[in-house]
Design a protein around this nucleic acid. Structure first.
Lengths: 168, 168
DNA sequence: GAATTTAGTTAGCTATGCTAACTAATTTCT
DNA sequence: AGAAATTAGTTAGCATAGCTAACTAAATTC
């Protein structure tokens, strides 16, 4: 049943074209498309690396992100939080339920009986700071070892990027 | 039951501390942590904006991302694809099932009967290119309107960032 | 040719996303 | 004041996506 014998999984069957073998754009594009693409790709890869660390926090990505808004942006209503996270109210409702269950956020009544005020608990604040540090630690370390000129260059670019993001 | 009357949802109950009200780091950190944080945040916000466009493609984010690996990186086995996407084999198995169901990818047998060869179909390639363009279009447009010096600056930073990502 | 290793799949759980439909509170309109 | 409309959140139900554990089948090793 196995006439062909081969050594320890030589992985030879697949062509392994593993490089950005961009097959050629099928139509003409804006001049900055290449840069936009690279920026997009870099952002994806950056987050992919950093997100690995978040698994250690023990809560899911949506809960972690929502918590960070509460911790770094202050108390919010559910609708505001949903807006900030670009998620529908029912989704945020469930995310918040999870945060409450874990004791990371709490809800309080407001004068307006329809609305609720959500805020991070001390436990939530602590977890967020630790997670943030853990997440960014490897990147910060890499940046530390760059020459000052490159750090400056990167800083300028980030500032520029933030400005671009404002009116995107 | 409502003695206090107020006008059209004046949104006055919540403090609205909506600025990066960083509450003060609870412990000393690496000097580049601030820059790393900003980079992280910028990447998150960038992707959040761009990803909105992907909804139009009609397939989920995981399928879209896996398809992009097949389109831009060439055929892969399931395990390789799972590795590239940093996802477990069972997860990728289901993602691929979805891509096949939509006719965007197909599987082929290899000499090694255990492994499969996955590749994008022409339909998948087309969809990917269109999606990529749609996704990046708004960003490219924003970049186009920047002065040349800033475009150069950004390009240099992206190149630098790519280098950093290699050994992160 | 038996035992082990490797590649994928299946089953079953959780988390996240959505829309539709509901409840409750508030505001608006007579 | 009281009915109607609007607004904020929740509940129900569906799909995608992530995981581990356990299984099947093929290939390699002993």
């Amino acid at each position: 049943m196995a006439p062909v014998k081969r050594k320890k999984t030589p992985r030879k069957s697949l062509p392994q074209t593993h490089r950005s073998a961009t097959p050629a754009p099928p139509n003409p594009v804006s001049p900055s498309t290449g840069l936009a693409d690279q920026l997009h790709s870099a952002a994806i890869h950056l987050l992919r690396r950093l997100r690995v660390r978040d698994i250690e926090s023990g809560i899911g990505p949506a809960q972690l992100s929502a918590l960070s808004v509460l911790v770094f942006g202050g108390p919010k209503s559910l609708g505001e939080l949903a807006g900030a996270e670009q998620v529908r109210p029912p989704t945020m409702s469930r995310i918040v339920a999870g945060l409450e269950r874990s004791g990371l956020a709490r809800r309080q009544a407001t004068e307006d009986g329809r609305r609720i005020r959500l805020e991070a608990t001390p436990l939530g604040v602590t977890l967020m700071w630790e997670g943030r540090q853990r997440r960014v630690a490897s990147l910060a370390k890499a940046l530390d070892s760059l020459p000052a000129t490159e750090q400056t260059q990167l800083h300028g670019a980030v500032t520029l990027l933030q400005r671009i993001l404002l009116n995107l």
